[in-house]
Design a protein around this nucleic acid. Structure first.
Lengths: 337, 337
DNA sequence: GGAAAAACCGCAAACGTTTTCCGTCCTGAC
DNA sequence: GTCAGGACGGAAAACGTTTGCGGTTTTTCC
């Protein structure tokens, strides 16, 4: 880590250089490379050769200025951990990179000042559109920019905005259906803080869909930790010793439940089946036994969001909220070995 | 999700509009807004007012074309999970967003074709520079672009390139020092695959630095799972029943070790102290007891990388590899309660 | 062989900035 | 009253591309 040298001034080829080498005008060169206008096949080929020879790549800055589009979109997220925004980002990129769009990542860290800063910067850059996402599913106030926007995972509070979210009720229902199919008839539910929208929705989904199969009196709200899963297990077994299934609002809670049941000598799933939620591999795989869980299909959510954003950019905007289905992933914690 | 309306044609103000409103030429307007040239305070103020009134934000496209810089850099990563690249990204953003630079995220998913695709796109965009990172620490082949590049976490195989990596040896040594300070004298090490560079480096760091305190005969290589941690614990207790500390190459392994020790009725840390590595909160916090671990300081690594990239862009490039220190985070698994 | 039509290609404007250079006006000194 | 110099602001080029229009050449047809 010592010596310093000046960076050599790299000269990249411009279309002017290509045109000169091919012996044509820049306009002609442009047409040749973009397969537009009417040119003889011979000149087209000659220009292409020249471009190859010089390693020419058209400067998107010029193109952006001319076309009015930057072929850039931004992902604005509050989820620093990336637990949720990473899969969404992958889905978004999937769709966008096919269309030669690039994605700028802006992590607001839940700081309104940072958010404002980023928005100004993005508007200055004339990005083609913005995908807004978060780590929680509570609806959020819309952002105020003269650009197409799609809200992913957390809907906009303005119902007229375009939002794509997860159908939590359906996810919870699929868990209940799964357990019913396995003959379970006395179901409980343990989840996170009552004021978390996802906790509340998953809980009501389970309770509503289970009907008389819900045998635990009430849902146990706590936090998203394994610790709480263990504690809740004790509570449940004391108040309702005859349970044969415990559904959880997250994989962490479910893992705590499994751990505690094992410590108490109760077999999962023979005595009691356990289900998680989120399908977080690091939890579902490491749990003993591995957890049946609900996959949020966030990559698909990202893809859909990106597609809607592209539509909005193209001028055909869809208004309102789109709810996407989840996918149940059965594992040993309900199926056994 | 039904009706479709055409998006109204949003007209954003150009500097021409500002100039017209202020009654000056565009050149003058530019100077007024950028505090350059020599203008009377009165005109300067008049132009500013006009800009405010129109909500004018200068179009970075024009600026980029004129200045030769795009004020955009890319983070090229192979780490889809984001486990490592997320903190690095945060650090990078920290430094870059202060300079009004934006960060494009490119996830290659370990696919050389995708990587090529992204590189072409980035060169076409004339980004100012690229930070290359990965989820593993093995040195990687350099990328071939006419741009400043900094390699973060995984160094370039070309030693003349600029790389910023973690000093794994130092991290391992700090664990040993910690245990020695607590009076532990019979230390073992359990880690991941032998052909993983980070596993090998951490292992040799522990062995070399522990000297005669290393009492386990040899390092146990396996995989990065809790399962392996549990299994290795059995092996170790059989072969070396008198151990008083087990150091692990990852937090997952360490958690497995703790779980198994508890199942066997051995107290952590009274009987045996346990340490992890990576300081992954979801593991260190959830483990019983919480894990003493080594923090990789990835955010700092991101900041340093970004700073070196800025230097390179400015023309003062530093060649070679910079190794950053880690930070030991003591918790109950060595300290007790 | 001539005219009409088609094929081909160049010119110049346009996108939105910044910056250099130059002209005009004013001030003040002699 | 003239001139030098400074203060101020405008005109135009430059960045790199795309595209509409018009001009020139070639082909086609009678």
């Amino acid at each position: 880590m010592a010596n310093r040298k000046p960076v050599p001034a790299k000269q990249v080829a411009r279309i002017l250089d290509v045109a000169a080498l091919a012996g044509v005008s820049v306009g002609t060169a442009s047409k040749a490379l973009n397969n537009t206008g009417q040119l003889s096949p011979a000149t087209r080929e000659r220009v292409r050769r020249a471009a190859d020879q010089l390693g020419f790549t058209p400067d998107t800055r010029g193109r952006a200025l001319q076309s009015g589009r930057t072929y850039t979109v931004a992902l604005l997220t509050t989820d620093s951990s990336g637990r949720f925004s990473n899969p969404i980002m992958r889905g978004v990129e999937d769709v966008l990179s096919a269309g030669e769009l690039a994605t700028i990542l802006c992590d607001t860290r839940d700081d309104p000042l940072r958010e404002q800063h980023y928005l100004r910067s993005l508007v200055a850059r004339r990005v083609d559109g913005i995908v807004v996402t978060g780590r929680r599913t509570e609806p959020r106030p819309p952002i105020d920019v003269p650009l197409p926007v799609v809200y992913a995972l957390a809907a906009s509070t303005d119902r007229a905005d375009t939002s794509v979210i997860v159908d939590e009720q359906q996810g919870a229902a699929s868990v209940v259906d799964h357990l019913r199919g396995l003959g379970r008839t006395r179901i409980a539910h343990v989840t996170g803080p009552v004021h978390h929208r996802s906790a509340a929705e998953r809980a009501s989904g389970v309770v509503d869909h289970a009907g008389t199969l819900f045998a635990a009196g009430e849902v146990l709200f706590g936090d998203w930790s394994e610790q709480w899963g263990r504690q809740a297990t004790d509570q449940l077994l004391r108040s309702h010793p005859d349970l044969d299934a415990i559904t959880c609002g997250s994989d962490q809670i479910a893992r705590g439940v499994c751990d505690r049941l094992r410590e108490l000598g109760r077999s999962v799933p023979t005595d009691i089946a356990v289900t998680g939620y989120d399908n977080w591999p690091v939890m579902t795989q490491a749990s003993r036994p591995p957890l049946t869980s609900v996959d949020l299909q966030l990559e698909e959510l990202g893809r859909q969001s990106a597609q809607l954003l592209l539509d909005a950019i193209a001028g055909t905007r869809r208004y309102g909220t789109l709810e996407l289905p989840t996918r149940l992933v059965p594992r040993e914690s309900t199926l056994g070995t």
